[in-house]
């Protein structure tokens, strides 16, 4: 469904991502793990069109979308939950969800999506009329995911959904990811919480200073001694 070929992204003169290859097949959960500053967010922002790549191709459903504007990419069903949640804090929870469904046409369909999102996140239903900024960190992450689900994503990009959350919420977030996977949503998951990410993923890539240094089935990556030493606290 998604192929990334030789992707290079630079900020000014410094290359943050150096010719990486990556692919995500329909129904898979692919994870990208790596330390602070490895370039994970840069990759996701580029996939979504927020940054123009210096070189390389991003092929979504057979079409090169590198350099396409973000709203067009979202409309093609590749939807991102950005790092730090980026919910609209000054708007209500309900308004955030409406914005998430921006690409969806038709009030009936939007309503159906909203019911399904609220079914998945009952805590959001209780807080529909509250300002999103008043939610706890975990609730904000649920809202960020729920907002993305409003767009009926075919490919969901998640940037460190567990960042800064209490352990209980982290468990909940990964349970949700497993649920989404069971529902057949294709996911590209960026995480620093490598053990949880490797557990839920089918395929894993390890990113180090802008390069993919190891790729393969998640179980095999999780067993790699270097990965155990560097990311799994072994």
């Amino acid at each position: 469904m998604l192929q990334v070929i030789g992707l290079t992204v630079a900020y000014g003169r410094t290359e943050a991502v150096r010719g990486i290859d990556l692919s995500v097949a329909q129904g898979q959960v692919v994870t990208l793990i790596g330390a602070n500053g490895a370039g994970k967010t840069t990759i996701l922002r580029t996939l979504s069109g927020l940054i123009r790549p210096r070189a390389g191709r991003i092929v979504l459903d057979g079409q090169d979308i590198a350099g396409m504007r973000p709203h067009r990419i979202a409309a093609r069903g590749m939807v991102q939950v950005p790092e730090g949640r980026q919910i609209f804090a000054s708007l209500t929870v309900a308004e955030n969800l409406v914005l998430g469904g921006w690409t969806q046409r038709g009030a009936a369909e939007t309503q159906r999506r909203r019911d399904s999102v609220l079914g998945r996140f009952p805590r959001l239903r209780e807080r529909l009329t509250q300002n999103a900024g008043a939610l706890s960190g975990g609730e904000q992450q649920m809202l960020a995911i729920g907002r993305a689900l409003m767009a009926t994503p075919r490919l969901l990009l998640l940037d460190e959904p567990s960042m800064g959350l209490a352990p209980l919420f982290i468990e909940e977030i990964f349970a949700i990811i497993a649920e989404l996977k069971a529902d057949g949503v294709t996911i590209l998951l960026v995480e620093q919480n490598a053990s949880a990410a490797l557990e839920v993923a089918d395929i894993a890539h390890v990113l180090e200073v802008g390069r993919v240094t190891l790729s393969g089935p998640a179980a095999r990556v999780a067993a790699d001694p270097a990965v155990v030493a560097a990311y799994l606290g072994g």
């Binding site: 504007r69 709203h71 979202a74 907002r147």
Partner: peptide
Amino acid sequence: EKPDAAALMGIDTA
């Protein structure tokens, strides 16, 4: 509030 997040929602910010 958040132009990038708005663009990710599919809003044509330009």
